[in-house]
Each structure stands twice: as structure tokens, then as C-alpha cells.
Amino acid sequence: MTMMKSPTSTSYLILAPVAILLLLFLLSSLNRTGAGGGSDGLGVLCARRAGTRHPTAAVSARAEAAEPELSLLVGILTMPKRRERRDIVRLAYALQPPAAGARVDVRFVFCNVTDPVEAALVALEIMHHGDIIVLDCAENMNDGKTYAYFSSVPRLFAAAPYDYVMKTDDDTYLRVAALVGELRPRPRDDVYLGYGYNMSGDPKLFMHGMGYVLSWDLASWVSTAEEILARNDTLGPEDLMLGKWLNLAGKGRNRYDLKPRMYDLSWDMDNLRPDSVAVHMLKDNSRWATTLRYFNVTAGIKPSKLYHLP
């Protein structure tokens, strides 16, 4: 019977450098995909369209070469369990062309993740995508989450403030370049922009929760406005409450109503328009598919024998 030889010291000397190289490769991979500073979010996702192997480096190089004309943080309020929806939304934004001259970062916003299974899966998303904010609040829709978001942003991004901060939902398809085009000629302070509710004859008293934008100074004001908490005005329909904060304080004087370019997708899904800024009520995959087809998001897919699509 042939006996197997035990490894010799020479064998270990040969294998050791290989193991060290493998470890270094894994660590560098984690560093590339981990959540870090700088402009990741949508900026990185858009960079991938250009075929760059290291999107973060590509975005950083562009940022150093030219200071952006404007910067926008898009916070998508969602819940940990909506993982499939986040994957669709990430791809929907990643396949959009970059907004020229703008730094746009997209973040998914949760409150505290208390379930240990969800916490583990969310941690994987954070490590891989680096596009999640977890606020210190109980998960909710109209019981203070929007307040927690706007009041936290100035502290979280104090080192690199944005010109504008947006709140939107995971059932809204935002066409980023179109929104940037609307923001570009606007002032950089005291701005409140979105889909205006027509209440009391004034279509700009409140902006619909499908998506609205505040200038950085207004987000900073929310973070320090003690009167909001004193009136217990964090509870209630979040879009109406935010409008109330601004109205009572006489703030947000530069108001812009983007109807009809922001709208709800109809029951028959037949009211899409080419100049859309945001399409709301994409509550299921069929509505997302209809919207993505309308805007030719997958038109650039290359023919291949590896897949057969209708």
C-alpha cells in the first residue's frame, strides 16, 4: 500500500506566501465594498456604466478634477424587509446616465433594525453597497421618521454638506438628471420643492410625500428647531407636518411645484410622460417593469446567447 507523504517544511514555505496574498486580496475587496466616506451612492453606481473596474476611485477622480455645480442627497425611506425592492431601485438608479455637473448620493433610510436576522442581512448590504442610513428611532411612517431623517442629516454629513436634501419613498422612480435640471437654476437656500398639494387655493402649502427637496439650510433648521418638538409636531402625515413646520416658521419662501412632471402612475399605467421628474405609486414589480420599459432603461442590453428575453 502506498503511504501518503506528510507535508514537508519546503511545502509550507511555498504555500505561506500564497495564503498571505489571498488574505491581502480579501481585505482589499472588503475595503473597496465597505461603507466609507466620500461620494458613493448614486455617483458610484453611475460610474459603473462607463465600464470602470473601481467606481469609487473613478468618482473621486472626477470630484477632484471639477467641483460639482450642485450636490444632492436623496434619502429613500424604506424598511429592512423590502430587500427585493431595494435591489430594483438600486438597478433603476444605476442604469441612469449621470447628472452632469452634480454630485448626487442615494441612501436607503431605516429606523433601528431590531430583528437579529434582518440586522445580519442589512449588515451585508451595508458592507457591500455602503448606501444605508440607520436612524435611532422606532420604525414607522408617520410617527417621526421623516423628522428623524431631516434632523439627523446635518450632523451625519456636517463634514461635507449638500446643497439640497431630498426625502422620497421606495415606490417612487426618480429621474435624477431631470431633477438636477430643475434644481440647477434655483437658489441654494430657503428652497422647498416637490409636488404641491392644492390646499386652500395654494398649491405650494405642502409638498406630496412621493418626494420633496429642502435646501441644506432648511434641513439644518429642522435639526435645531425646538418648537417642532414642543408642539409634538413630529406625529402625523409626514408630508403635511413638514409643510406645517415651514409655514409656521415662515421658512421655505422659495417654493417650486413640479406638477405635472411629478405624479402618481394611474391604475391603467397609461399616463407616463417623457419629461417626468418622478413617478409614484410603483407598488409592485409589474408597475416598476412598465415604468422601466417606458423609459427604455434596458434598451442598451447587448445581444448574447447566454440569455433569451422577450
Rank of each mutant, 00 (worst) to 15 (best):
I301K: 08
V117Q: 14
C137K: 01
E69M: 06
A123V: 02
V279C: 00
G37C: 00
S215V: 06
G250V: 11
P17A: 10
V191K: 00
R261T: 12
L258K: 00
L258S: 07
L240G: 03
L121N: 11
T10Q: 12
Y147Q: 05
V113W: 03
A177T: 12
Y256D: 02
L240S: 07
L240C: 00
D40M: 03
L124R: 12
V165I: 14
M141L: 04
L72N: 04
L156V: 01
E67K: 13
R107I: 03
R103S: 14
K5N: 11
L218P: 03
V117A: 15
R103D: 15
A100H: 07
L309R: 08
P116V: 13
L309I: 09
L292P: 01
M262L: 09
A58R: 02
E67Q: 13
L21N: 01
A120N: 13
Q96L: 04
S39G: 01
H128R: 13
L70R: 08
W216L: 01
E182A: 14
A47N: 05
R62D: 11
V44S: 11
S29A: 13
P97E: 15
M166N: 02
F295G: 08
R53L: 14
A225W: 06
G51H: 12
S9G: 10
A63L: 09
E139R: 02
G36T: 11
V213L: 07
G101W: 02
L42T: 05
S39F: 08
D143S: 13
G252K: 03
F157Y: 15
D275R: 10
